[in-house]
Every structure is written in structure tokens, then in C-alpha cells.
């Protein structure tokens, strides 16, 4: 397959092609420029599909990813999540909310001196595990934390 990254990027809407290329191993997910929206990963209805979409199936549990999120979120519409990876060579970080209809929330790629750390506000439909995935040297690592979402402000 003679396909340069440029032609790949030019083909807006060619996410299927991109996914196929990833699946075929032509491109490792780490080299895919995020400028094209990863439709397959973001529209996946379950965690497994989302992980697969970013090439993180079978991610290893790691204590070197620091996931900061509140224990209890009174407002599920804005839950502040900070993820920092201490794994050398971390090139990207993704945030999943396991029980959301589409679990993948955001995926960040770092370059040119950016530290592998990101803060993002996410929406949560209900109490759920938040999973942070870091990809370093082509390997996926994951850590998780449960955030309780209280409904109706009764502080349960």
C-alpha cells in the first residue's frame, strides 16, 4: 500500500480507510496523526470497542499513570479529570468514562516538549469508573478510578 500520511490526512471522511490501515498494521496507532477524528474509537458503544479503536486492547495496569478525579461528583455535567503519565516515552493519553453511552471522551497526543499530562472536563451520566490509558513506545497502559455521581443533589 503506497499511501503517504499526507494523502491520508487529505481524505477527510476516510476514517474507514484509516481504521483499515491501522487494523492491517500498515500504521501503528502511535504514528497516526490525531488531526483526523478517530470515528471508530469515539463512536464505540462499549469500553472494549473504544480501547480497540485507539489500539489499546489488552492494556497493562500501571501505577505510573496518575489519575486525579473527585471521589464524588455532585454535577455529572462537569467532572474535572487530570491524567499524568510517568511512563517514559508516553506519546498519548486517552480518557474513558466506562458507563457513558460512548466511553471514549478525549485522546491527546503530545509532541515537541509537551509533558504527558492533560486536564479535561468530562460529562458522566452515572457513577462509573474513569479509565486513563497511556500509550508509550507502542504499548498501552491503563489505570482507573471510580467517580460517584450523585443525582438530585441528595449527596448519596
Amino acid at each position: 500500500m503506497d499511501m503517504t500520511r499526507r494523502t491520508l490526512l487529505r481524505g477527510i471522511g476516510s476514517t474507514g480507510v484509516l481504521a483499515a490501515a491501522v487494523a492491517a498494521g500498515v500504521l501503528t496507532p502511535i504514528r497516526v496523526f490525531a488531526a483526523e477524528w478517530n470515528k471508530a474509537a469515539f463512536e464505540a458503544k462499549d469500553l472494549a470497542g473504544g480501547l480497540k479503536g485507539i489500539g489499546a486492547t489488552g492494556a497493562t495496569d500501571s501505577k505510573d499513570i496518575v489519575l486525579t478525579a473527585p471521589e464524588i461528583a455532585e454535577n455529572g455535567a462537569v467532572v474535572s479529570v487530570t491524567v499524568a503519565s510517568k511512563i517514559p516515552g508516553t506519546s498519548s493519553i486517552a480518557v474513558f468514562v466506562e458507563k457513558n453511552p460512548m466511553p471514549l471522551s478525549a485522546n491527546f497526543q503530545f509532541a515537541n516538549g509537551a509533558l504527558p499530562e492533560a486536564r479535561v472536563n468530562v460529562k458522566m451520566g452515572q457513577t462509573s469508573l474513569i479509565k486513563a490509558v497511556a500509550i508509550a513506545n507502542g504499548k498501552a497502559y491503563v489505570t482507573q478510578k471510580e467517580v460517584k455521581v450523585t443525582m438530585g443533589g441528595c449527596g448519596g
Binding site: F42, A77, N112, L115, A118, R119
Partner: peptide
């Protein structure tokens, strides 16, 4: 930063309204 990409991000629908992001970059 100065024309060089430092963060390249994808978002889904579950990012909050009026989203806030924070990053750290070494070098600038």
C-alpha cells in the same frame, strides 16, 4: 507554540460544555 504542534487532540461528545483543557509544555 511558535507554529510547532505540541498537543494534538480528539474529543468525543462526553467532553463538557464550554470545555476547559490544561497542558504543560517544556521549552517555551
Amino acid at each position: 507554540v511558535n507554529g510547532k504542534t505540541v498537543i494534538d487532540a480528539n474529543c468525543g461528545v462526553s467532553v463538557s460544555r464550554n470545555p476547559v483543557f490544561g497542558f504543560k509544555v517544556k521549552g517555551p
